[in-house]
Amino acid sequence: MERARETGEGSSSSLRQQRNLREKERRMRMKHLFSILSSLVSPTRRLPVPQLIDQSVSYMIRLKDKVNYLEEKKRALLGGEVQNRSQGSSLQPKLSIRSRDSTIEMNLVMDVNIKRVLLHELVSVFEQEGAQVMSANLQNLNNRTFYTIIAQAIICRIGIDPSKIEERVMSIIS
């Protein structure tokens, strides 16, 4: 009978040790995950967990707003798509150029069946007009080509003339 108690007591302490070990592993895993979250949200300083969670939530809300903004922008750029499909015609090129301070952003959407425009042709327009291209992107999606170029004036005092860039890009795409 003593042996039964000993093995029973041994197995309960073994279970307790296993439970403690699992809890310790869980705490270590949570600490590691909070560390990763902290490096993403506030890489410069370590925050207490409640502040870290608050900042993470506000960061996620900002990201969600940005996604919504970009989806709206995409819908605006593709606005004529449904109408043109119903008429059976190709999508006409949509060009938008926005300028702010010494930075200019160009978005162009073209149907691949209309004309093929090379990205370097568009980049060269910006460079010839006195801009340094910071980002140039080309993406093909659903028989459309999306061009995005972000540039900055080489000499900020002189700036960039968006109307000249628009005129030259229109001559390339038409």
Rank of each mutant, 00 (worst) to 15 (best):
M1W: 05
R3L: 12
A4C: 02
A4I: 15
R5I: 03
G8C: 10
G8Q: 13
E9C: 14
G10H: 10
S11K: 12
S13P: 02
S14T: 06
S14L: 13
E23M: 14
R26G: 03
M28V: 09
L33Q: 13
L33P: 06
L37R: 08
V41I: 15
V41Q: 00
S42V: 10
P43E: 05
R45A: 06
P48Q: 09
V49H: 09
V49Y: 06
I53N: 05
I53W: 14
I53A: 05
Y59D: 00
Y59G: 01
M60K: 07
I61S: 13
D65H: 05
V67Y: 02
V67D: 03
E71Y: 06
E71C: 14
K73N: 00
K73F: 00
R75C: 04
A76I: 02
L77C: 00
G79T: 00
V82Q: 11
V82I: 14
N84V: 00
Q87I: 09
S89K: 15
S90H: 10
P93N: 10
K94D: 04
S96T: 02
I97S: 00
R98P: 01
D101W: 06
E105L: 12
V109T: 04
M110C: 15
D111V: 05
N113A: 08
I114Q: 07
R116P: 01
V117P: 04
L122E: 02
V123M: 14
V123W: 04
S124Q: 15
E129G: 01
Q132W: 09
S135C: 09
A136N: 11
L138T: 08
L138K: 10
L138C: 13
L138E: 15
Q139N: 11
N142Y: 11
N143C: 11
R144F: 05
T145Q: 07
T145C: 10
F146C: 04
Y147Q: 01
I150D: 01
I150R: 06
A151V: 03
A153Q: 04
A153M: 11
R157G: 02
R157K: 12
G159P: 04
G159A: 10
G159V: 10
G159S: 06
S163G: 09
K164L: 09
